[in-house]
Nucleic acid binder design. Structure first.
Lengths: 212, 212
DNA sequence: ACATGTGAACTGCTTCACAGCG
DNA sequence: CGCTGTGAAGCAGTTCACATGT
């Protein structure tokens, strides 16, 4: 299979979300034009994105909504259950552990970790917070697929290395540092400070350039 | 000023974070090579990124750490205080409202909104949750700079339109929908489900292609 | 001698435009 | 006739390579 751009995968997620709504509304067929409008892109981009994976549409008609939905789920690999662990039971880690949207989409939180003795042993939403020292052992036993890192910046690299060594191959990193791991580990970064700084930059520049 | 790519602005944030550490450690000078290593990019990329904004380095030496730090803060517009409002007092909104990292970096949460009568009036971390019906009026009075949207997907577009109409020009959108707003409003999206699906895609494809 | 700053070359994503097919 | 699927063209972001300055 040809290498797929990150931006393409992101758009597939967007299309899928809208398609799921459309299925519920009983819509049978949808054009690339309509998908583009809702996804904030162009119809050519939609067709190109989908064409990497097959021919899902009917010329002169559009795409069959239920079939395309199933196909995208399959492409993104969200037909199955993915097991995720959350490392770092701070504010954000806690919110994520309790967030219902994960399980709903096939991502099951199987464990929550922290290093703070005050937090270890406490329970949230059915998850007992475990001691992060046990993580290597636990990963071997529980075989989770994805680690969500919500630890302080200083600890992120070390924890990333440990979960990678234990066999995890996907990390969602909330710590504001760039992780350096073997290339067979896929890392996605979510960095609130960075996003806010991006907005700050945009606002600052708009002011300088007189609003154009 | 030439148009700056989003990817460049993101990297500037990364450089800045590392530079701030370096200042604390008393490091005087840093090379593009070292910045690149820490930022997960190349030295040429670092030099190119910085060159859009000026000549900060000394040939044969590298970049002076304190001066470059100040310059990047200035470029990103984080010398001043930005006033932010959080709309949606659910799990994630609550976590963000209590998150200390914002104020620390110059982003001050000035108000939290929700539409649920049970939540309106309650207090978190010094913020009384206000009724979202008052938001237009409040924005005119409080003049916030950035809105953080943590409302359900169905409500995001309508709320986005309201805050845009009230004069807000920057939105950090956590709802899993693409906002359609006038182009003078800058929107950044943070979408956990999308990131997890990206990891799911990577894991699924690795399995199919036999790990390369 | 060494590391920056930067045009030029390159790579890869996006857009165009139209042939192909229902 | 309408809308998809897709090579070709266009464009933007990255990498190269070296002249430049200290």
């Amino acid at each position: 299979m040809k290498r797929i751009a990150d931006s393409t995968v992101r758009r597939l997620s967007i299309y899928l979300r809208f398609l799921e709504d459309s299925v519920l509304q009983g819509i049978r067929t949808i054009s690339s034009e309509e998908l583009a409008r809702r996804g904030g892109t162009t119809s050519a981009q939609v067709r190109k994105d989908l064409s990497f994976f097959g021919s899902f549409g009917k010329r002169g008609l559009g795409y069959p909504v239920p079939e395309l939905t199933t196909a995208l789920r399959d492409i993104l690999g969200i037909g199955r259950e993915w097991r995720i662990i959350i490392i770092g039971a701070g504010k954000i880690g806690t919110a994520l552990a309790q967030y219902g949207g994960f399980r709903q989409r096939g991502f099951q939180v199987v464990a929550v970790y922290d290093s703070d003795p005050q937090k270890i042993g406490s329970r949230w939403d059915g998850h007992e917070v475990r001691d992060v020292v046990d993580i290597d052992h636990d990963i071997a036993a529980d075989r989770p697929d994805i680690a969500v890192l919500t630890v302080p910046a200083e600890e992120a690299q070390a924890i990333g290395e440990r979960v990678a060594a234990a066999g995890l191959r996907a990390i969602l990193n909330f710590a504001p540092v760039q992780l350096h791991l073997s290339s067979d580990v896929t890392v996605r970064n979510v960095n609130m400070a960075m996003e806010l700084e991006g907005l700050s930059f945009a606002l600052t520049n708009r002011e300088k350039n007189g609003n154009d």
